[in-house]
Structure formats: C-alpha cells, structure tokens
Design a protein around this nucleic acid. Structure first.
Lengths: 354, 354
DNA sequence: CTGAAAGCGCTAACAT
DNA sequence: ATGTTAGCGCTTTCAG
C-alpha cells in the first residue's frame, strides 16, 4: 500500500496561498454568507488549482454531516433491486452524497445488520430498498438516529415510495376478466413478515376483482409461494404445476411478479399447452424479460421509485418537509401472453419469441 | 431530522467507566498486543453494555484507515454487474469494510468520475468492476493514492480477476465446429477503448478456432456491435438480421454475450427459422436468462470473481502480496440452442422453453 | 468581513 | 501494561 495520499492538500495550504486564514477559507468553500465575493473567488481558484478536496473525516468531526447515505437492499443481482438502486444512486450522486451499500439477503444477514447496525455513526440517512422493515427491526434501526426512507415497499413508520399494489392487482385481474376469463388463478407471494389476516394489496385486488365480476372464489386456484428465493422462476413453475393438476384448471393466471409468471409459462408449455391459447398469463413489474418473452404485465416505474426515494432523503437532510407516502402509477402492458379464453380469435395473438 | 445521535457514547465514556485511560481503552478495543487480558475484557464489556461504536471519522483522522472501499461499476440493473458486486460485497462486509458505490455508466458520468474523483480521501482502496480503465483514466485514478483492483476485465496496470477470454471463445467456437458447422458467424462486442489491431480474446479465439479447423475466414460472417448499450438484446437482434441477409448465411452463431445471443435467437425465430435446427446459437456468461431460455453458452463464475476481487483488496490492505492476475475457469454449458447443422439427429435437440 | 482559538473523538508515540 | 501528550484537518464560536 502506498503512503496515505502523498499529495494531500489541506485547507491550511489553500488558506496560506490564498492569503487568508483557514477559517475564512473554510467559510468561502462552504459558501457561507458573510464572505467577500472577491475573497470567495480567490479561495475557490486556489482550491481548484491545488485540486483540494476536504477531508470528510475532519469535516465531519468538526461538526458537519457525514455526506453519506446508507442503502440497505436484499439483492443486487436481481433487476428490480438493481434498477431501484440505480435511480437512487443517480439522485444521491447529483446531491453530492456518497452511497454506502449494505446487502442483507438471507435472514441471518438481515439479523446481523439490524443487530450490529454497521452504518451507525457513518451516515446522515438510511434508505431501505425493496423490503418491509419488521417491528423489531424498526426499533433497532431507529437507534441509528438518522432519517429513514423506504422504497418499493409499504411502511407505516417512515416516508415511503411505492406502487399501489391493490390498483396494480386490479389492472391485471380486470384485464383477464375483460378478456372473458372466468377461471382465473393467482400465484401469490407470501411475505413472512405480513399479517395473514389482511391479504396484501395484490391478493386483495384479485379477490375484489373476481367478486365484482360475479365470479365465485375458488381456493384451489390460489397458490402461495414464499418471498425471497433467488429467481422466482422455479417457484412459479412449480406453482403452475399444482394449478394444472387441479380438477378444473384455470384458463388464466395472475402472478405477483414477472419472474413467477415466466415460470408459469414454462410449465404450461412443457405440459404441451399453449400460451395464450390454452392459458393466459400475466405478471407484475415489466421486467426486461417480459418484453423479451412477450409477457403481458402490469409495469411499475422501478428506476423512478429509486429516484423519488433519493429526493426524499435529500429534502429531509435539507430540513424540508417530506411526504409520508408517494404512490407511483402502474400501467397495464398487454403483450402476447394474454388472450380471450378457448381458441377464439386466433389473429389477435402473437407468439412468444425467444 | 433528529439531533446528531443523541445517545452518542464516546471512547472517553467507556474509558472512564472501565476505569482506564482512553488510550488503554482504544488499545483494548482494537485488540492491540500489550493489554492485560482482564483489562481488555472489562473494556469490551463496558463498550458492549454502552453500545459504543467508534467514530470512524475520528479514528481515521487520528491516523487509522477509513475502513471503506470504493467500487466503481458501469451498471447496477444488469445481472452481470449486480452478481459481481454481490460477491464483492459479501467479502468486504465480512472483513468489516464498508462499500462506497459509484456508478459510472455513460461516457459523461465516467468522465466526471475520473475528473472529480469523488472517492478521494474517502477510501482505502478502489475496485473497478466490469470495465477497462483507459490510460488517461488510469493516470487520474492513481492520484487517489490507494490500492486498485480490477474485476471482470483485463488490466495491465492493476491486480485483476477475470476469465480467459480466448479460452472461453475457443470453448464456444470449438463446440460449434465439433457439431459439424462450417459457416460460423460471430457477433462481437467492440470495446471503444481497445486497440483494433489486436482483436480481444473472444474474437481472436474465433479466428484461431476456424483456422485450426481449416475453415476459411469470411468477413461477412462477423458483425461488431459497440459495447455499453443497456440491454444488448436489441443489438444482437439487429446483428443477426445482417447475418441472415448475407449471400450465404451462417448455420451457427457465436455471440460474445448471452444477451446478444438472445437477440440473435429472436431474429432467427422471427425470420421463421428454427433454433437450433436451422441456426445454432451460443453465447457467453451463463446469464440466468440462458437457463430459462435453454441457451447454450460458456459460463463464467461471476459472483466468484467479485469475491476474489474482494479478497485481493483485503490482502492488499493487510500489506500482503497480491497476485497480479487471477484467471477463473469458464465451462461450456450445452443446452438446446446448439445442434449439428442441417436437420440431422433430431433426437439430440430440446425445445427452447418460454 | 476576517482572524484567533478551541475543540470534534480518536490513535500513536513517548513515557512510566 | 498503562497513562500522558500531541496532534489528525476541519468548523465554529468569539473577537476584532
């Protein structure tokens, strides 16, 4: 390792060369009010010439903020989380904030994070991306003593950005209903932390949409998978297997995510049936895979949710008021995996490519 | 915003309560050699009880290290980069290092990063993930004065982990040759920073493999796309269109990535041809999509490359010697998108699902 | 508007 | 083995 930054230029150097005291230099560089314009300009010039960068440590120690935001995310290799992180990063970077990344995938990692709180004393705010913070976790998290924002999930306790899951579910199921389907199945994700008595938005939307259409509920048409596994595709495939094995199989399936939906499509095809002629399938997210595989879906603006979370953090840090809940709109994206039931209207369907 | 960490416990508090001097407390907590076991234990107990956490700022300022590593990556929502980042993160976290994330996608962002070097004075090391550092960039990057490690790409200047691109290319093209193909095309990525005179590993492997098989080179069978676009699928699709339009189209295609390969597959199918019966397609990476779409490919251990980069950083920080180049093995993954040319040996092929 | 002085919380010599 | 003494580089009162 090299010696610690041999060419380090300090505030004192800048001040000396600019012919002012360190105090003035500091004020000039932090854009404080009471500094002569000429002085400010001179100090900035010298600082730029010397390529001066404040020592964040010293700055923080002397009373400033850390200029850092912790981001806690369960996965990094899955599109949804990556895209949201990307949106968040762009806003934070623009605001001059550094992003400290903490991945907390499995239960053990998650527990360790909330126990040890490695971000303590290191950040000005924390953003939780794509998972719901449990009560116990919330209590611990708060001991970090900074602002907290949640993105991509519901949160009663913190400002959050997310989609309206109920509305999204309605868009999907209503689409199937309007196509004429009556036997509509659902592959739902079950969040271990959620209250089973109150089905989450997408599930409740399914039931509401069926009820509104006068379709009787059929418990054999709902399969629930646990959240959290790596890809989701296999779970979707398995769930579809169960659905296909039912006495009276569905003609359409609403999956809570595109990955589950793709697994379902795979199973349908492997069973020798066709999508959408024999079974329609719709997911949620508008994953890039959905476009590639011609999957109908309810799209959500993922990147944008990350951006909004970033803006919430920046506002909060500035001491401005922050909205408690921002709902972003979803949109129905009709592709080739949904069509009317039976084998009617051939021409209206497209093949799934790839 | 809350007041800055109301419950802040400092070293001085711990020291006082434990009945020692701050210096001793510091030594005890940093596991220094010359501290009585009893003292160490007592200090640790008090620190734990009080939930003391060192102020990284003060620690660093007083001569320690930052305990942070900067990671520079071009994309966050693409599997390859996310998976590598995930591997890296796990090792850094285990070593107690924090990860400062910088995304530098487009040219402008990349330029800004290397101009401003926002990581200066903030980290003990820098990891460059998945892109080649140009000469000018290298010069600037070095002014940061810390260790640098490159993963997923070649680097003459820094310790790096990567696959042997030439070997990977041979695995792919040799596979096609062994299947009996003679008209083998390539969809290559062109790295803007690379020297056109020296074709990169995968391309040179293609030429070498054909030469070894006594197949004459045919320039119309090579299409080059620029690196860096978002998904790659569309570029692959377009490239395949050009190939299909050739006087004498290929019976097999080697694409430099799975995403390009999937685009190629889409074009082949849209042209009314079948994969692999009419055209075989093989990619590189073993992207999760490849398994899903039954694409043959040359797999590389992406997560592991991230881990290895992490270990290189940790070793370097410990002052241990670090290997200059670590090559990780690739493996040929034969799925349903490659088969002998013509319509021979039906039984050996599987359908592409989804 | 600017300078002088006093730490922020910690670690690393240097003593003891 | 432990305590004492200096700062690290910056921001911030408090004076001018």
């Amino acid at each position: 390792m090299l010696p610690p930054v041999p060419t380090a230029v300090n505030l004192a150097d800048v001040a000396r060369i600019a012919g002012v005291s360190p105090a003035t230099a500091s004020r000039a560089l932090s854009d404080h009010p009471h500094v002569a314009a000429a002085t400010r300009a001179r100090v900035w010039r010298v600082a730029t010439d010397l390529e001066y960068v404040v020592s964040p440590e010293a700055s923080r120690l002397a009373g400033g903020s850390t200029g850092r935001v912790a981001v806690v995310v369960p996965h990094l290799s899955r599109w949804f989380f990556g895209a949201m992180l990307e949106g968040l990063e762009s806003v934070l970077r623009e605001a001059g904030l550094d992003l400290l990344l903490y991945r907390v995938g499995e239960a053990a990692e998650r527990q360790a994070f909330f126990d040890e709180l490695p971000a303590r004393r290191k950040v000005d705010a924390v953003v939780v991306l794509g998972f719901a913070v449990g009560d116990d976790e919330r209590r611990r998290l708060e001991r970090i003593g900074v602002d907290i924002v949640v993105a991509g999930e519901q949160s009663a306790s913190y400002p959050s950005v997310r989609i309206d899951d109920h509305a999204a579910g309605r868009q999907a199921v209503d689409h199937l209903v309007h196509l004429g389907h009556r036997r509509i199945a659902m592959i739902a994700v079950h969040d271990p932390g959620a209250d089973p008595a109150h089905p989450a938005g997408r599930s409740s939307a399914y039931h509401a949409a069926l009820a509104d259409a006068g379709i009787a509920a059929d418990a054999t048409l709902v399969v629930t998978v646990d959240r959290g596994a790596e890809q989701g595709v296999d779970q979707g495939a398995e769930a579809m297997g169960a659905l296909l094995g039912a006495t009276s199989p569905p003609t359409a399936v609403f999956a809570h995510s595109d990955e589950l939906a793709l697994g379902a499509v795979r199973t349908v095809r492997r069973a020798g049936l066709r999508v959408p002629e024999d079974v329609s399938v719709i997911g949620v997210d508008d994953h890039p895979l959905a476009a590639l595989t011609d999957l109908s879906t309810v799209g959500q603006p993922v990147h944008e949710q990350g951006e909004i979370a970033g803006r919430m953090v920046v506002s909060g840090l500035r001491g401005e008021a922050v909205e408690r809940v921002v709902l972003v709109p979803t949109r129905l994206v009709i592709r080739g995996s949904t069509a009317p039931p039976r084998r009617s209207r051939r021409g209206a369907t497209r093949r799934a490519d790839v």
